[in-house]
């Protein structure tokens, strides 16, 4: 318990420091001004969400292979935390886009594929509520999770070839792109903070899922007696 409280304190502290760095340490962007500072939070959360979904995909594969309930708990945990992260991304994105692009939303490759990604994992969570038997629920949702994760890059490719407006990749985007060195430091600190925070949420949610499982077991035992 103490370890989890400590972990939580570190995660929240890191997020607070990252927010401070994004607001006060990072230099002001020349054309966009203060609104650009949301980028540190927006993109870092997106990265954390994508990592979380990747962990979910791995957990799904491991469940199909090994059939250990732990992997199912990890799968649902990551799907929920990932969906929460992407919800934040989908809210902070339009807040930035309105003053910069003049519109809240555009149907470009990255926005659309993020939106579809979000919908797919909402469906994953919905599917889980509609199957009663725990083992069947775990297996069916794991299979759907594999399909969903594989689909997202194809969605991205399909839309990218026909329509696109999101700013070209700033990080690892090829020659001519790039961040100011201080901005880069602040950004990667934000990425670290959001990953640690996501990991904290995953740990909390995982133990909650485990507790749920234990309660269900106890209930079943009590009914038998």
């Amino acid at each position: 318990m103490l370890r989890r409280i400590l972990f939580g304190a570190v995660a929240i502290g890191l997020v607070a420091c990252a927010a401070y760095a994004a607001f006060y340490v990072a230099p002001e962007e020349r054309t966009m001004g203060a609104i650009q500072r949301i980028f540190y939070f927006h993109a870092a959360t997106a990265w954390a969400g994508e990592t979380t979904f990747f962990v979910c995909f791995v957990a799904n594969l491991l469940y199909i292979w090994k059939r250990k309930p732990h992997y199912d708990w990890l799968g649902v945990t990551c799907a929920e935390v990932g969906a929460a992260c992407i919800t934040v991304v989908l809210i902070t994105g339009p807040i930035w886009a309105k003053p910069v692009w003049g519109i809240w939303w555009t149907w470009d490759a990255r926005l659309t594929s993020t939106f579809v990604l979000w919908i797919l994992y909402i469906c994953y969570l919905l599917l889980r509520t509609l199957v009663d038997e725990p083992e069947r629920r775990a297996l069916l949702s794991a299979l759907f999770g594999v399909f969903a994760f594989i689909d997202v890059p194809i969605v991205f490719g399909a839309i990218r070839w026909w329509r696109t407006q999101h700013p070209a990749p700033v990080i690892m985007g090829g020659p001519g792109s790039g961040l100011d060195p201080l901005m880069k430091k602040v950004f990667f600190f934000n990425v670290l903070a959001m990953h640690v925070f996501a990991a904290f949420l995953i740990v909390q949610r995982y133990f909650l899922e485990k507790a749920k499982h234990d309660v269900a077991l106890l209930q079943r035992e009590a009914e038998v007696r």
Partner: peptide, 28 residues
Amino acid sequence: LAAISAQARMRELLLPLLLLPLLTPILV
């Protein structure tokens, strides 16, 4: 996905829900 939804409750509603977002690339 029909094999999945056949094993769930609300299956008539569930299949379009699971299927349509996955088929985005085909539709586009």
